[in-house]
């Protein structure tokens, strides 16, 4: 290995000022006496400086909220109230405890009912089920203090108990603090109204997903792009995600999923597609939206005058992405006159 190669290996260390004094001197002497390594060093410094133009990205405020919720710490609460792992002994009002217990019973009962249905699930025509879930006065992130006297001494099943802490005597009381979780699984046909409504709700309120929203959308797309399961409510949920999600990647995935939906279903989301085509700042979302509209036109779906006007405007918009313009023109050429 030549001297030059050794010197060049030291250049990143020289940039971070991590070389010891002797080695630093030696490297600088070499750089000054060797034109090739001098050029190399200049290139290193230029690259290092350009890398400095990579701007810091701000952490979205919701991330802190999500973390504090996941950790069981209420944001904004006084510090004294955030000592979530050391639970003080005090009795809560029985009404609140009963409300929490009722929440548990509703969830457990619902899961049991769903799991033991032998026939098709009855379709609930109102969004009450979802609304109830949202408004239930039970929070899994909440720290609860339960007096032992109010808990049944009979432990049923094998609850998943974790992070157990033994709390020292306080007066004549001792304490046992732990996390306990229950998991609810709802199964059914993709065409079950309850399943469709649940999935729509999850898509539109994606905070609790264990997978990323993009992967969740991909999973939904794989199921509901099949014409036999195509559902306007799922398409509508995807349209809402495409309109409102803050992440470009998620909006792209939602638009892409709409593109694969059968025409009669995707047609109901035409307004959202037009909205995305006109207003989404990300060209990739606009591309997916115009592709979906082109598919609709190709399938013979009737497009209203507003849609046609938008496509026409896009096809000649000089500062628009070329592919978007071409696809808009293609959609126009495929429109079947009524």
């Amino acid at each position: 290995m030549s001297e030059c190669h050794l010197m060049r290996e030291s250049m990143p260390l020289l940039l971070t000022e991590s070389l010891d004094r002797d080695r630093r001197e030696l490297t600088h002497q070499h750089i000054e006496s060797c034109a090739a390594c001098g050029d190399e060093w200049a290139a290193y410094r230029d690259s290092w400086a350009i890398m400095g133009d990579l701007a810091e990205v701000e952490v979205p405020a919701r991330v802190k909220q999500r973390f504090l919720e996941a950790a069981g710490i209420a944001a904004g609460a006084p510090l004294e109230q955030r000592r979530s792992n050391v639970v003080p002994f005090y009795r809560r009002t029985s009404a609140k405890w009963l409300a929490q217990a009722a929440g548990v019973v509703i969830i457990a009962g619902g899961a049991y009912f769903a799991g033991n249905q032998t026939g098709a699930l009855r379709v609930d025509p109102t969004p009450a089920t979802i609304a109830n879930v949202q408004q239930m006065p039970y929070s899994i992130a909440e720290t609860r203090v339960l007096p032992a006297s109010q808990i049944s001494p009979q432990i049923e099943g094998r609850p998943d108990i974790q992070n157990v802490q033994f709390l020292d005597h306080e007066g004549d009381k001792i304490g046992l603090s732990f996390d306990v979780t229950s998991r609810v699984t709802v199964t059914g046909s993709p065409s079950d109204r309850s399943m469709v409504r649940l999935l729509s709700y999850v898509l539109e309120n994606n905070k609790g997903l264990s997978a990323s929203p993009s992967r969740a959308i991909e999973w939904v797309k794989e199921t509901y792009s099949d014409p036999q399961f195509a559902d306007p409510e799922i398409a509508s949920a995807l349209a809402k995600v495409m309109r409102s999600d803050q992440h470009e990647g998620v909006r792209i995935r939602a638009a892409e999923s709409l593109k694969t939906m059968p025409a009669p279903v995707a047609g109901d989301t035409r307004e959202a597609l037009i909205d995305a085509l006109k207003n989404d700042p990300n060209p990739a979302v606009r591309i997916k939206a115009v592709e979906a509209l082109a598919n609709l036109a190709r399938s013979g779906e009737a497009l209203d005058p507003a849609t046609i006007d938008t496509l026409r405007a896009k096809s000649v918009q000089s500062d628009e992405n070329l592919y978007v313009r071409a696809k808009a023109a293609e959609a126009l050429s495929n429109i079947k006159l009524q």
């Binding site: 001297e3 030059c4 070499h30 190399e40 230029d46």
Partner: peptide, 20 residues
Amino acid sequence: TLKKALTGRDSGGDRCLNAI
């Protein structure tokens, strides 16, 4: 890799044979 991508300058090989 970054140097090549950002400045267009590839490593010039071991052209220098200066002894230190």
